[in-house]
Amino acid sequence: MVLLELDKITKVFGGLAAVRDFDLKLEKGMLSGLIGPNGAGKTTIFNMISGIIPPTNGDIFFKGNQISGCKPHELARRGIVRTFQISTLFSDLTVFQNIVLGGHNSKGLGSGFLDSFFSLKKRDELEQSTLEVIELMGLNDWKDELARNLPHGLQRILEIAIAVNAKPVVLLLDEPVAGMNWEEATRVMEIINLLRRKEGISVLLVEHNMRVVMDYCDRITVLSYGKKIAEGHPSEIKEDKQVIEAYLGT
């Protein structure tokens, strides 16, 4: 089943096409990779899927419904949740508070407002799911630490944890293992695989770490200068002439 479908999306910034006629299909349960040299338009595509910027042209479908033009919070409530390239956290809040905030989408805003006067049951539910996510992501020892005090690797994991508590159907990860050594990167990827198994989350991933991409992704899409130049299984991508050219130059 195709969960997420991009149909010929184009984004033009001041006359320059950052992304041109880009197609993508993400199937349920898949871990799909999006790679390409710097400036190829990967983050722009993420921004369009998550509703931060609207595409100039083309349609985005989620579970068969047209979603281009929706605001980020609407998409998050439907199940498309993203992380950012640069560590994006509530840095002066504790790890627990960070993850609690991630879980507010399914509860809506109204309940948060009423909560303040009547301690409703929903709050316990939210706390419960937060504790589960903390357990799942292995952040138990850091629960009450301020997010800013976490080492880099754990900050990235915390970012994913915030997104996971928002109960995503599709998780968009923008360079989740950037700046990590192989050991840390494997740990993050194992967590992502666990999420796919346990929560049935489908993942679209932008990453520069080729080893991670080749080892873990089911399918890879290669982007260069805003255009798709190749798509397929990692083993096919490895052999693709155009891809090698794009990365190594002619």
């Binding site: 998550s50 931060i52 605001k71 980020p72 919070h73 998050a76 409530r77 949740v81 993203r82 950012f84 994006t88 956290l89 509530f90 840095s91 002066d92 809040l93 508070q97 905030l101 991630g102 879980g103 507010h104 989408n105 399914s106 805003l109 948060g112 915030i162 997104a163 508590n165 928002a166």
Partner: peptide, 17 residues
């Protein structure tokens, strides 16, 4: 949620608030 807005409104928006 107010604190979240102060520290990082974009992240809060992107998790569905």
């Amino acid at each position: 949620l107010c604190d979240g807005l102060r520290f990082n409104w974009l992240l809060e928006e992107c998790v569905g608030v």
